[in-house]
Amino acid sequence: MMIDIRDAYRRALDGFGSRLHLVMDDQWELTTPCVDWSVRVLVNHLVNENLWAPELLAGRTVTEVSDTYERDVLGDDAIKAFEVSSQAAVQAVYAEGALTSVAHLPFGDVLGEEYVTELFADALIHTWDLARAIGAVDRLDPELVAACAEWFAAAKEGYHQAGVIADHRNVPDDADQQTRLLAAWGRRG
């Protein structure tokens, strides 16, 4: 990957946060490109992932953590919940040994670097989902798109088999890299 994955993840979270600050009071129940997810459910998903990151990078298992965060964790201030959780997640990925630790994920154990890469990709794609849902600028950082596309080329089949992404969408041969990446994730750019 051409960028430090920790920096990519931090920047993806910053991009999500900038769109999150644009959500109006009447937009929380809008649908997103994620099937059956409202804006609030999407934000809750990302906050949950942020809360899991320090725990899983510290060696805890999903079973040990799941009851703690598999619920609505946004409370009355979704933006603050996101900001606090993002700060904790970023601190965890920059901690010494985080990238070489073993993260015990539902589908098996992976090195911390792979886990952080998955978190980065999820944050980046969900930034587009959020922007689309609320009508904000949906252009993603081209450097992050390139990094995600490079990683996802090898990871796509596993994601598809696990059923966590929709079927690949066809795009014109001259489509830009963001459109191709989103299509690989089953999104219509």
Rank of each mutant, 00 (worst) to 15 (best):
G163Y: 03
R6C: 11
A131M: 02
A53N: 09
H160F: 12
V164P: 02
F16V: 00
I3K: 07
T32W: 07
A8Q: 04
H160L: 15
E118Y: 11
Q177G: 05
A53I: 15
V171W: 01
G163R: 04
V65D: 04
A123R: 03
L13V: 01
L124H: 06
H21R: 15
D141H: 05
V43C: 06
A92H: 01
D167I: 00
R180G: 00
T100Q: 12
R60S: 14
A133S: 14
T31Y: 06
N50T: 04
D109H: 10
I3P: 00
F107S: 10
R6W: 05
D72P: 07
R60V: 05
A183H: 01
L119Q: 11
V47F: 01
L99D: 09
E157N: 12
M24R: 15
A78P: 13
A53Q: 07
V43F: 04
G108D: 06
A175P: 01
V62G: 00
Y94H: 11
H104V: 07
K80T: 15
L22E: 15
F107N: 04
D72V: 06
L130Y: 03
A136L: 04
M2Y: 08
A95V: 06
P172Y: 04
A12Y: 03
T179D: 12
E49D: 14
R132T: 15
Q177M: 10
Y69L: 09
T68M: 14
R71Q: 15
I79Q: 13
L56A: 06
F152L: 10
F120V: 09
Q27H: 13
E83L: 12
H21Q: 14
D67R: 14
T61G: 08
W37G: 00
C34I: 07
L22T: 10
A89K: 02
E96Y: 04
N44W: 00
S18N: 09
E55H: 12
A92C: 10
W37K: 06
S86C: 11
R60G: 03
R180C: 04
M1E: 10
I125R: 06
L111I: 11
Q178N: 07
D26W: 06
V43P: 09
R6F: 09
D176V: 00
R132H: 13
T179S: 14
F107L: 12
V116T: 10
C34G: 00
D138L: 05
A162M: 13
V35Q: 13
N170E: 15
H168C: 10
N170S: 14
K80W: 11
A175Q: 05
D77Q: 07
A58V: 03
W28K: 01
L130D: 02
G17A: 08
P54R: 02
C148Y: 07
L57D: 09
H45G: 05
C148A: 15
D167V: 08
D72Y: 10
D72N: 15
V171K: 03
R40K: 12
T61K: 08
R188Y: 08
V93M: 11
V84L: 13
R188H: 12
G97V: 03
Y115G: 03
L119Y: 03
V43A: 01
D122V: 07
